[in-house]
Each structure stands twice: as structure tokens, then as C-alpha cells.
Amino acid sequence: MEVRTIKVFTTVDNINLHTQVVDMSMTYGQQFGPTYLDGADVTKIKPHNSHEGKTFYVLPNDDTLRVEAFEYYHTTDPSFLGRYMSALNHTKKWKYPQVNGLTSIKWADNNCYLATALLTLQQIELKFNPPALQDAYYRARAGEAANFCALILAYCNKTVGELGDVRETMSYLFQHANLDSCKRVLNVVCKTCGQQQTTLKGVEAVMYMGTLSYEQFKKGVQIPCTCGKQATKYLVQQESPFVMMSAPPAQYELKHGTFTCASEYTGNYQCGHYKHITSKETLYCIDGALLTKSSEYKGPITDVFYKENSYTTTIK
């Protein structure tokens, strides 16, 4: 009895394709271990004539594949690729409408935090270190965002349907971005203890939790000093293409032309909904596939993004 075979390709990165001759009487799992086709788990399936010449994702289970996976995804987590594939199996079914010149995501599976993050990423200057993220990001900007969303979920250790947080998501993504040249110098002034300067680099240099107003941050924000008295913390120097200011959701007025974009969060910790506000020729609110415009805006804002380049204080 002759062994019926077909020729397929296996890959971990969709760049390096490895030619395989597979036995049609055995499952993919018996031949390769966990195997995925377009995100779908085909591990328990036997090869079919229609699979001839198709590319299958496999887990990096030998040295060659491990090197290829690390170079593309910059992670050695053995569960990463499987999590990416199972997320992709959902995100490829989502709709990605162009809204006001940006790629958004039609609401499904509690994905409003991903839509808000995706919209924000198209408006701030950011370059990702893992080629996987950078490639998928370019495709997302062009309207094909399924891979990018699935990668975000995998890097953030999230599953489809789980509630997510924009600030946490951005923080994970910033860790995989090139923020080497970003720098922030802060000064804390206390009447009792004097003053202390701190220099922050990388992710810490672009994120701040405690106030939404970048102007206020430049002037000074009140913080408790270690001595128990009130101290003032203010920005001395900022070198970065953008800054992200966050605070627990509270009524906040966004003035046209003073910011790049913002995240609105309605609801409580267990259950809520994100919308995205962007400042173009007027203010726009993007909620999944829905767009509304207004000249002014007041609502429960939790993150505001500002364009920056270089700032030095005039406070002496």
C-alpha cells in the first residue's frame, strides 16, 4: 500500500517557510505537534488534498525554529505562539472599519479597549522592536488589523473576551517599542525636605499616572512627601515624541487643539466601556464603527496623549 502524501510549508514567522512532505494517514499533531492554519487549530486533523502548498504555523520545537521565533517575536515564552494563534482565530472574524481616516474595530468580545489602543497607536510616533509587531502594525494602518490585535493580546497575556485596560495595554506595548531616546527629568520640591531631581528613561519617561493635564504637570502637581507634608512635583525636561497622561476616570474637559487623542471610560472596574476622542479640525468621538463630532467635550476621561518633541522648564 502506497503512502499518500502532500507537500506543505511549516513556519513560526510566515517569513521562513520549511518544506514538509506530510503523510495523509496521520494527523498534523502526530507529525508536527500543535499546528495552526489561519489561526485555526488543526492539530487533530489529517492532511487533505486542499492543504497542498498551504502554510501551517507550528510551535518552535527545534533550534532553527526557536531562533526564527525569537528573532521575529522577541520572546522565548513557549506558550506565546499558541496564544497568538488562538487569538487570531477570533480577531480574523472582527470587522476593521476605516473611521475618520483611522483603522478602528467594530465592537465584539469586549474589544473596546483594543480599538482605543489601536486608534491611539496610529496617532503617536512609535516604532516597535519585534519585527512581528512592526509588520502587523503597518498592515493594521492599511486596514488589516487582525494579526496586530492578536499579537497585542498575546504580548499582554490576554484572551479574547476578557476586559482590558488601555493604560495597561499601552504599557505592555511600550515595553516592546523603541523608547531608548526618551528621557524625563522631574523635580520634587518640599518646604521641609528641599528639592530632589529624578531622571527617568524609556517607558517611565512617557507615562504618568495622577493627572490628565500635561500643562498642569509642567506647572506642578501636589504629591505627598515622605515627611508627610505636601510637596510639588513638576516637569523639568521632556525628550520624547509623545507623552501619555493618565488618571482614574473623572469628568474632564478636553479643549480642541490642546491634545492629540484621549480615552474615555464609562462604567466601573468590573464592567465598563471605552471610547476614543481625537482632536482634528474639530473633536471626534470614535466608538467602534461609530463616529460623532463636537466642538467641545466633557466626560469621564482616563488617558490623554500629547505630541511632544523637546521641553525644558522655565521655572527657576
Rank of each mutant, 00 (worst) to 15 (best):
L283I: 11
I301Q: 03
N268M: 08
E68T: 08
N178S: 14
F32I: 10
F128C: 00
W107N: 14
L200R: 03
Q237D: 05
K229I: 07
R184E: 09
C227D: 03
V189K: 09
E281S: 06
T232R: 11
G288R: 03
K201M: 15
A146F: 02
R83Q: 00
Y252G: 03
Q175V: 00
A150R: 01
L254K: 05
W107Q: 15
P224E: 14
F9V: 10
L212R: 07
T199W: 15
P130Q: 02
Q238N: 05
K307L: 10
Y274P: 02
V221A: 06
V8W: 00
R141W: 03
D303N: 12
S310G: 09
L133A: 02
S181I: 07
E281G: 08
A140S: 05
H256M: 13
M26A: 10
A108D: 15
Y234I: 10
M170I: 06
Q195D: 10
F70G: 13
W94H: 00
Y57F: 15
C261F: 05
Y28M: 04
T266Y: 15
Q237A: 12
A150D: 00
V3K: 13
R4L: 11
A87D: 00
V3D: 06
Q20A: 12
P224F: 09
Y306T: 02
S50T: 11
T55R: 10
S310W: 10
V42D: 00
A145V: 02
K44W: 04
K127W: 05
V243K: 06
G202L: 02
Y274I: 04
F217T: 05
T64E: 11
A145F: 02
F148T: 01
E125L: 03
V188H: 15
E308A: 07
P224S: 13
I152R: 02
S79Y: 07
P241V: 01
A69H: 11
F80D: 00
C190Y: 04
M207A: 08
L102H: 15
E2L: 09
D62A: 08
T116P: 02
T5Y: 08
R167T: 14
D23G: 10
D62I: 11
Y274A: 08
Q123R: 03
Q197T: 15
K44I: 13
V166M: 15
S171W: 13
K158S: 02
K218Q: 06
T313M: 15
Y73Q: 03
D13G: 02
P249Q: 06
G194Y: 04
T266V: 14
Y84V: 04
Y113S: 02
I105P: 03
C149F: 04
M170V: 05
P131V: 01
T159G: 12
Y284S: 08
R139G: 07
T103I: 15
G288H: 04
D165V: 09
D13T: 07
P78E: 10
L291F: 10
W94D: 01
D303H: 04
K92M: 12
K7D: 14
P131R: 04
Y137E: 02
N309S: 12
T64Q: 11
E144M: 11
N178P: 03
V166P: 04
N309F: 08
G210Y: 03
N14W: 01
D77L: 01
G29Q: 08
D38L: 11
E296T: 14
E253F: 07
G161P: 02
T226P: 12
A231I: 04
N16A: 07
V3T: 12
K298V: 11
L88A: 05
Q197R: 13
L88S: 01
K93S: 09
T312I: 15
A177G: 00
G39L: 04
Y306M: 03
T302L: 05
S104E: 02
A132Y: 03
F305I: 14
S240H: 05
S104H: 01
T226L: 13
S294K: 11
P130K: 01
T11D: 02
S25K: 15
N110D: 07
T282S: 12
Y137A: 06
C149Y: 04
A262S: 06
N61P: 09
S213N: 15
S240M: 03
E71D: 12
G161L: 03
K218S: 04
Y172R: 13
T169V: 11
L114V: 07
S213A: 06
V3N: 14
T282C: 14
M85L: 15
L235Y: 02
F148K: 00
F148V: 02
R139D: 10
L186C: 09
Y234L: 08
K293V: 12
K298Q: 15
L212H: 05
Q122E: 03
A40T: 15
F9W: 09
K298H: 09
Q197A: 11
E168G: 14
T27E: 14
F9Q: 13
G299E: 04
M244F: 04
Y297D: 06
W94F: 04
D62Y: 07
E296F: 12
I315N: 10
E215S: 09
H74L: 06
D41W: 02
L254Q: 06
D23M: 10
H276Q: 07
Q30R: 15
N100D: 09
P97R: 06
Q30T: 14
A132L: 01
K219A: 14
Y208P: 04
G220P: 09
A69S: 09
K127L: 04
H48D: 13
H74D: 07
T313Y: 15
V185E: 03
K218N: 05
V58F: 04
P300W: 12
Q122L: 02
G228R: 03
G101Y: 04
A115W: 01
K219E: 07
E253Q: 15
T91M: 02
L114S: 01
H48A: 11
T211Y: 02
N110C: 05
K316N: 09
L88C: 07
F9H: 08
T258V: 07
Q20E: 12
T10P: 07
H74N: 11
L133I: 04
I315Y: 11
E71N: 15
M26S: 13
V8T: 06
D23S: 08
K7E: 08
N147D: 12
S104A: 04
E308Y: 06
V3H: 13
C182E: 03
C227K: 03
G272Y: 11
H74I: 00
G161S: 02
V206L: 09
P97D: 02
T211Q: 09
D13K: 04
A117C: 10
E253N: 14
S86R: 13
T27N: 09
G194S: 01
V160H: 12
G29L: 06
L200W: 05
C112G: 15
C225Y: 03
D63Y: 07
K307M: 07
G29D: 10
T75V: 12
V189M: 10
R167G: 03
I315E: 11
A231E: 04
Y73H: 01
T159R: 11
N157Y: 02
F128V: 01
T232Y: 11
P248W: 03
L173A: 03
A231T: 04
S50W: 13
A205Y: 01
K44L: 10
S181D: 10
L212M: 07
N268T: 14
N61Y: 11
A117F: 00
P241A: 09
G39V: 06
Y57G: 02
R83I: 04
S181Y: 09
V189D: 10
N100H: 06
K316M: 12
Q175F: 01
K92F: 00
L254D: 06
D63M: 09
N129G: 06
V67H: 15
L200P: 02
D62P: 07
A142H: 15
P34I: 12
E2W: 09
L151Q: 01
E308W: 08
N111P: 05
N111Q: 01
L254C: 04
R83W: 00
M26P: 04
H276T: 03
A108Q: 11
M24S: 13
E2K: 11
Q237T: 11
Y284W: 12
Q122C: 04
N309C: 12
M209R: 14
L17F: 15
Y137R: 03
A247T: 09
M170T: 00
V58I: 15
T64Y: 07
A150E: 02
G228F: 02
A136S: 09
Y96L: 02
Q196Y: 10
Y84T: 01
C227E: 03
E239C: 11
Y36W: 15
D287Q: 06
L200F: 12
N111L: 01
M26W: 14
L81E: 04
Y234V: 10
Q31V: 07
P248K: 13
A140R: 01
V67R: 14
V166E: 00
L283Y: 01
G202N: 07
Y73F: 15
Q222E: 13
V304D: 06
D180V: 05
S79V: 15
Y306S: 04
S295K: 11
K92A: 05
T258D: 09
V188M: 09
Q216L: 08
A289P: 09
G267W: 12
D23Q: 12
